[in-house]
């Protein structure tokens, strides 16, 4: 019987997976990582919480979601560092002068040559630049090219293509009876009426389950007019049909009134 593979500081891979659930970083300088994702390391590595101090310049350069900073840590030093996340699949990806938007809970670590920004889509983060990042997913990641419609729960992120829009598959929910069915649920719904639709050139990353990784705080948004989720309501548009009281407005619209 052969025993398990024994790793030491020399046989650990450099910036590659140890197995599907652990990733080894050959650290010589700095990396950003999510709090609590380091499981072991060799060598001299210091972990700094993000805040004011000698890392201020670095953070100003590659970190753009200020209030979200408490969830991130800078690893600084030399050595090999192992990263893992609740025994989910982890993978590294290389960006070359590119951009990638990823669900906030999935991003594990990234090189400071990339810069991290909040996406204008709530709950997503965008990485821009050249460098390596590590992401977790529930099951292996599948890469697909647009045009494609994906299930919201299976979406991990997308690279280089325009942001998605919502797509509702209401072909079979038309007319009066369709409206009744959509509104009351009588007759049933397939649970797949709503998708994200991607178009244009790029890559879409999907995970192979519909179990979403818990979301991470992406930081508060500036309260400005025109910022989605910024908390400032858009000015009211012109006159509309008088709406029935209660939730019946939706019903009106569904029946084409």
């Amino acid at each position: 019987m052969t025993g398990p593979v024994i790793h030491d500081v020399h046989t650990l891979p450099a910036n590659d997976n140890v197995h599907a659930y652990a990733f080894s970083v050959d650290l010589d300088g700095r990396w950003f990582l999510q709090k609590g994702k380091m499981i072991a390391y060799y060598g001299q590595i210091d972990f700094h919480g993000i805040g004011h101090g000698h890392l201020e310049g670095l953070i100003a350069g590659s970190f753009h979601s200020p209030l979200h900073a408490a969830d991130w840590v800078v690893a600084e030093g030399r050595g090999k560092m192992l990263l893992a996340d609740r025994s989910f699949d982890v993978n590294s990806y290389d960006l070359d002068e590119g951009n990638l938007t990823i669900r906030s809970g999935n991003l594990l670590a990234f090189q400071p040559s990339l810069s991290l920004k909040q996406s204008i889509i709530p709950g997503f983060l965008t990485l821009i630049g050249t460098g390596t990042f590590v992401a977790a997913s529930n099951g292996p990641v599948v890469f697909v090219e647009p045009p494609i419609r994906v299930d919201p729960q299976a979406l991990v992120g997308w690279a280089d293509c325009p942001s998605p829009c919502h797509h509702y598959d209401h072909q079979y929910l038309r007319g009066f009876w369709g409206g009744l069915r959509a509104h009351t649920g009588i007759g049933g719904a397939s649970g797949e009426e709503h998708q994200f639709e991607f178009t244009g050139a790029g890559t879409v990353l999907l995970q192979s389950t519909e179990q979403v990784l818990p979301e991470r705080e992406t930081g508060a948004l500036p309260a400005e007019e025109g910022v989605p989720g910024g908390g400032v309501p858009a000015p009211e548009s012109g006159s509309q049909l008088p709406q029935l009281p209660g939730g019946l407005g939706g019903l009106q619209r569904r029946f084409g009134l």
């Binding site: 024994i6 500081v9 650990l12 140890v18 659930y21 072991a40 060799y42 590595i45 192992l82 893992a84």
Partner: peptide, 21 residues
Amino acid sequence: DGPAVVLRVTREYPLQVDPGA
């Protein structure tokens, strides 16, 4: 929780491990 990684510790290369892992 997930397949364990076996890490060798030698005199020259001590190892630091997160208590939770």
